[in-house]
Each structure stands twice: as structure tokens, then as C-alpha cells.
Computed example of a mutant assay.
Amino acid sequence: MAHIDYYFATLSPYAYLTGTRLEEIAAKHGASITYKPLDIGALFTRTGGTLPKDRHPSRMAYRAQELPRAAKKAGLPLNLKPAHWPTNAAPSAYAIIAAQQEGGGDLGRLVHSILRASWAEEKDIAEDSVVRDCLEQAGFDAGIADRGLLAGAEQYAANLEEAVNKGVFGAPFYVLDDGTMFWGQDRLDDLDAYLAGDL
């Protein structure tokens, strides 16, 4: 059975635009997923990327056109300039890590609800109440947000180191157990084809 390590950031609009397609593809092919939220700013710094605030205006102008197009193709609502972005991604990432360790709910739903809160619902995913609500919506105990702080912080840092060592340089990024990599929500069709043996 194939396994997918999914590296992403809860601040990434492109991770939001993944929607639930990764989970659908994994289910189709009987693949498992390990969710690995990480600090995207630190990843960019370590691998030669540039934070949006530091990018050339031409790149940001293109991003302003491309994101709404991608959202329309994905059938997802998107606020190009969310009220609470950027924000502290750590609380939401720690909650995802803790939920994955404890189990009891739908992890894919949790990830998507956190991303949706930021990119479509004008919520601040650094706020405890928002994170707790997302946990409950996905069938998890909201108390996970408190219990998983230390372990979440350690795993969050470990995810970054692992990503850098594996050659990950952006988000979303999908790494299969055979070392095959796909970068971006627009490569999900390629991931699907690869798992089917067609690519």
C-alpha cells in the first residue's frame, strides 16, 4: 500500500485549494497519509524561497490573478486578502499534530476546516476558539488543543527538518514512500495518475 507524506502550511492558500482531493485520491488507491504541517516561512528561508511580502510586484500581481482562477477551478470560495493573514500558524499546526497522534476524528476534515477558516471565513487560526471549533467540527475532542502543545511544538520543528532533508521546498508538497515527489495542488492529477501506474 502506498503512503503519502503531506507537507503543508496552514497559512498556504495553495494548501487550502487542495480541498479534499488528496484524501479522495488516497482513498481511491488505498494509500495512507501522514499530515506534516510546517513553518512555511522557515522552509522558504532554508530552501531559497521568498516570502510573499518580499516578492517582486510582478510576482504578486500574477498571484492575484492565479489564485482566484485556481479557486474557481477547485469550486472553493476564496478571499484573496484575508483579514487575519498572515497570522501565527503554530496553534493550528500543533492541533493537527496532536489530533493525528490521538485519533478519534477526521484528520482531513480538520486540516481543510482550518484552511477554510483562514481563506474563506475571515477567522484567525491563531485564536484558541477557532482551533477548538475546527477540532470539534472534525469529530475531535477540543481539549486536544491544550494537551498537545509540547509534543506539537517538537513535531512541528521536526517536520521542517525532515522536509528540508527530503528536498521539500514549498507547500503543498506530497512525498511518496518510494521517494517520488509532487509539488502544488495543481499536481494532484499527476499524483493520482502515478498511483494508478499511468505516470
Rank of each mutant, 00 (worst) to 15 (best):
H3V: 05
F8L: 09
F8N: 05
T10K: 10
L11V: 00
A15W: 05
Y16F: 13
G19F: 11
R21F: 13
L22F: 14
L22C: 12
L22H: 03
L22W: 10
L22K: 09
E23A: 15
E24Y: 14
A26N: 00
A26V: 07
A27E: 12
A27W: 05
K28Y: 15
I33K: 02
I33R: 06
T34N: 04
Y35P: 02
P37V: 13
D39L: 11
I40S: 03
F44C: 02
T45K: 14
T47N: 03
G48V: 01
G49S: 07
P52A: 15
P52V: 12
K53F: 04
R55N: 01
H56R: 08
P57Q: 12
S58P: 00
S58A: 10
R59K: 14
A61K: 04
Y62G: 01
Q65S: 08
Q65W: 06
L67E: 04
L67V: 00
R69S: 09
R69Y: 09
A70V: 05
A71E: 03
K73N: 14
A74Y: 10
G75Q: 12
L76V: 03
P77I: 07
L78P: 04
N79V: 15
N79C: 06
L80Y: 04
K81I: 12
A83L: 15
T87I: 12
P91K: 08
S92Q: 06
A93E: 08
A93D: 02
A93V: 07
Y94A: 13
A95R: 08
I96G: 03
I97T: 15
A98T: 04
A99I: 12
Q101K: 12
G104Q: 06
G105K: 01
D106Y: 13
L107D: 00
L107K: 07
G108Y: 09
L110Q: 02
V111I: 02
S113V: 01
A117N: 08
S118N: 08
S118C: 09
W119P: 08
W119L: 00
E122N: 08
E122W: 03
K123S: 01
K123E: 12
K123V: 03
D124M: 06
I125S: 10
A126G: 13
E127P: 02
E127H: 03
D128F: 07
D128M: 15
V130M: 10
R132N: 09
D133E: 15
D133K: 14
E136K: 14
Q137A: 15
A138R: 06
A138H: 14
F140L: 04
A142L: 04
A142W: 06
G143D: 13
I144R: 05
D146C: 08
R147I: 11
L149N: 09
A151S: 11
Y156T: 09
A157W: 01
A158Q: 09
L160H: 04
V164H: 02
V164I: 10
N165H: 13
N165Q: 14
K166D: 13
G167W: 08
V168W: 01
F169D: 02
G170C: 11
F173K: 12
Y174R: 07
Y174P: 06
D177Y: 13
D177H: 13
D178F: 15
M181R: 11
M181D: 06
F182V: 05
W183T: 01
D189A: 05
D190R: 04
A193D: 11
L195F: 01
L195W: 03
D198A: 03
L199I: 00
